[in-house]
Simulated assay, not measured.
Amino acid sequence: MADIWLMRHAAYEGHRAGYHAPHEAPLTVEGRDQARRSLPLPEGITAIVTSPIPRARQTATLVAHLTGLPIVATSGLLAEWRAPSIVLGRTAETYPQAYRAWRARRLANPSLHCEDGESLTDLHIRARRCAAFLHLTAHRYGPLLAVSHTLLLGVLTHLTEGPAAFTTAARMPWQFAERRLFTVLQPTAPPLQSSPR
């Protein structure tokens, strides 16, 4: 099986601890520099896939431009955990009570949603599908770089923990533009059909 390298997007505007970034937040100048400094890529990578969220897509596009590698797919399977819209652009000290209540119950009931947010169970199911998608894409294109987001990457690399992987992911964030080799050996869910961008 071809290697799959996972990479977190680079720094984006407005980032701070506990902040739920709006999806449209673009890379900063420092973020673009981080993407450049992430090179060279591990030997053998032949293609890139990315989340559609701008900070990941911009990171992938810059890496593709600098390396000449093609972006062969943009997939929502690689998108960050979908936080409820009531917390987007907010930090922990300004979280609404509904979100605080959900956080207190989310591990006991991982299928629980907070308004329009993604439940921990839904995120875990999507991460399983993402693993299958990555393996299928690597089988088709060869060694792969997948650009995504810290919580999704954390869940993806701790699939065996089930929905509780969200907690592990939150405790062990990835640094901006950090890469890790994906070591899940086999896909854990049937792949979804995904058309190249």
Rank of each mutant, 00 (worst) to 15 (best):
A2Y: 06
W5I: 05
W5F: 13
W5E: 09
M7E: 09
M7Q: 09
R8A: 08
R8F: 13
A10E: 05
G14V: 05
A17N: 07
H20G: 09
A21N: 04
P22R: 09
E24M: 08
A25N: 07
A25R: 04
L27G: 04
T28E: 14
E30M: 11
R36P: 06
R37A: 15
E43M: 04
E43Y: 04
G44E: 13
I45Q: 07
I48D: 03
V49L: 12
V49S: 07
S51A: 14
P52N: 11
P52R: 05
I53S: 07
I53E: 10
A56N: 01
A56K: 03
T59Y: 06
A60S: 08
T61G: 11
L62K: 02
L62E: 01
V63G: 06
T67E: 13
P70A: 11
P70V: 10
V72W: 04
T74Y: 03
G76F: 10
L77H: 07
A79R: 06
A79Y: 00
W81A: 02
R82N: 12
S85I: 02
I86M: 06
V87T: 09
V87Y: 09
L88P: 00
G89K: 01
R90L: 15
T91P: 02
A92E: 11
Q97G: 06
R100T: 02
R103M: 15
A108D: 15
N109Y: 04
H113M: 12
H113W: 05
E115L: 13
G117K: 02
T121S: 14
L123R: 01
R126F: 07
R126W: 09
R129F: 05
R129C: 11
C130R: 02
C130E: 05
A132H: 03
F133H: 09
H135F: 10
T137Y: 12
T137I: 08
A138G: 06
P143L: 07
L144D: 06
L145E: 05
A146I: 02
A146G: 07
V147A: 09
S148A: 15
H149Q: 11
G154I: 01
V155E: 12
V155Q: 05
L156K: 01
L156G: 03
L159T: 01
T160S: 15
T160N: 13
G162C: 12
F166V: 01
T167P: 00
A169C: 06
A169M: 07
A170Q: 10
R171S: 15
M172S: 08
P173E: 12
P173H: 11
P173C: 10
W174S: 03
Q175A: 15
E178V: 01
R179C: 12
L185M: 12
L185Q: 14
Q186P: 00
Q186K: 03
Q186E: 15
Q186S: 09
P187K: 10
P187N: 14
P190D: 15
L192Q: 04
Q193F: 11
S194C: 12
S194H: 01
S195A: 13
P196E: 13
R197S: 14
